[in-house]
């Protein structure tokens, strides 16, 4: 009897690229749900716009690059990029802002470098930073959590704001507000102390109201990814522990002017960044030891940018800066091969 041949190994694990990416989206669902709970329909509309634009722009650029369209789209990597960027944007961001950011991320930061696996920078963060630098006003107009403003917008109202910029009668002021990190930055500049600032209803138990629950959900999602062996623990642990450490040192030194370590973890994009953005395999370090250095760099840089930099949150910049150093770190953190002496 004759048989077909193939080379060993003859079996493969179930963690294939497209499923892996779907797991990441699955792990993002609790955090997305929390955001929806606190910030309303805008969160979901952003995601829909982002995913649609991501697919269209990727298909477009693949056609130009003469690469297979459907097999590439099927790997779900564009879906993840779009999703991550969408939940990082203000919930009432105008549609063109989302579309611009996502298409820049896919076309320039990903495909023009050669597509998945070849991009030196995290595409979602490139998209975010491009928007943050180009449209600072739109990017910092966050919606206050529903429980703070007491106002909840219907789906129709939200769509009118996002697509036609038709504001409700009483205008922006009732709806929008600064993010907690933003608030701390501006109020500190007005010579207030942290305990004074934190009396604002914008702040919750640990971080910002609403934000902290989203952060908690990202933490759960991240743990699920670690359990499923889709990401390794090294990066998130390094990001969070280095951030805790540096925040703790300054907090001990002067708790009136430096926010508490736990506030830093549960405010802004720290948990999202630690579990979902810093762990992007393509643009981060590969070795376990390298991931520790890489993550620690992100944690420290985020704190530095938040505290002394010009932007309220620093995750995106920190990730991009560490993306640049990833190959360098990898070079110096090669594991010791079995049987090679310890020198």
């Amino acid at each position: 009897m004759r048989f077909n041949t193939a080379t060993s190994p003859h079996d493969h694990s179930q963690n294939k690229l497209d499923r892996l990416m779907l797991h990441v989206v699955l792990a993002l669902l609790p955090g997305t749900a929390a955001l929806y709970w606190y910030f309303g329909w805008g969160v979901l509309i952003n995601i829909v716009i982002a995913v649609a634009v991501a697919w269209i722009s990727e298909a477009f650029i693949l056609l130009i690059r003469q690469r297979p369209v459907f097999t590439t789209l099927k790997d779900n990597s564009a879906l993840v990029t779009a999703w991550l960027l969408a939940i990082a944007l203000p919930p009432l961001a105008p549609w063109w802002l989302t579309a611009l950011g996502v298409s820049f991320a896919i076309v320039f930061a990903k495909q023009l470098y050669g597509g998945l696996g070849y991009n030196p920078f995290n595409p979602a963060m490139i998209g975010y930073v491009v928007l943050l630098i180009s449209f600072p006003l739109e990017m910092t107009q966050w919606l206050a959590p529903v429980s703070v403003s007491g106002e909840s917008l219907s789906l129709q109202q939200t769509m009118q704001i996002i697509f036609f910029h038709q504001l409700p009668v009483d205008g922006w002021d009732a709806l929008s507000g600064a993010t907690p990190l933003d608030k701390i930055k501006t109020e500190l500049a007005l010579l207030k102390t942290i305990p004074e600032i934190k009396t604002d209803p914008l702040f919750g138990y640990l971080g910002g109201r609403g934000w902290e629950w989203a952060g908690f959900c990202y933490l759960l999602g991240g743990l699920y990814l670690i359990y499923k062996k889709i990401i390794s623990w090294h990066t998130p642990v390094a990001v969070l522990s280095s951030m805790l450490f540096i925040a703790f040192v300054f907090y001990l030194f002067d708790s009136e002017h430096y926010a508490s370590p736990l506030f830093h973890i549960f405010a802004g994009g720290a948990l999202l960044g630690a579990f979902f953005i810093a762990t992007d395999p393509v643009s981060s370090c590969t070795s376990s030891r390298g991931k520790l250095f890489y993550g620690a760099g992100i944690g420290v840089l985020t704190y530095v940018i938040r505290t002394w930099g010009g932007y309220p949150d620093g995750i995106a910049f920190a990730v991009l800066l560490m993306n640049m150093s990833a190959p360098f770190i990898d070079y110096y953190t090669k594991p010791r091969v079995y049987g090679l002496s310890k020198q």
Binding site: L116, G117, S232, T286, S287, K334, V337
Partner: peptide, 26 residues
Amino acid sequence: ELPEPGKPKPCIRCGMCEQVCPANLL
């Protein structure tokens, strides 16, 4: 139980290979 090998996709540098290598290679 012995599936046909799938179509290779680009390496995403995830480092899973390194995590399982019993010889500690890259």
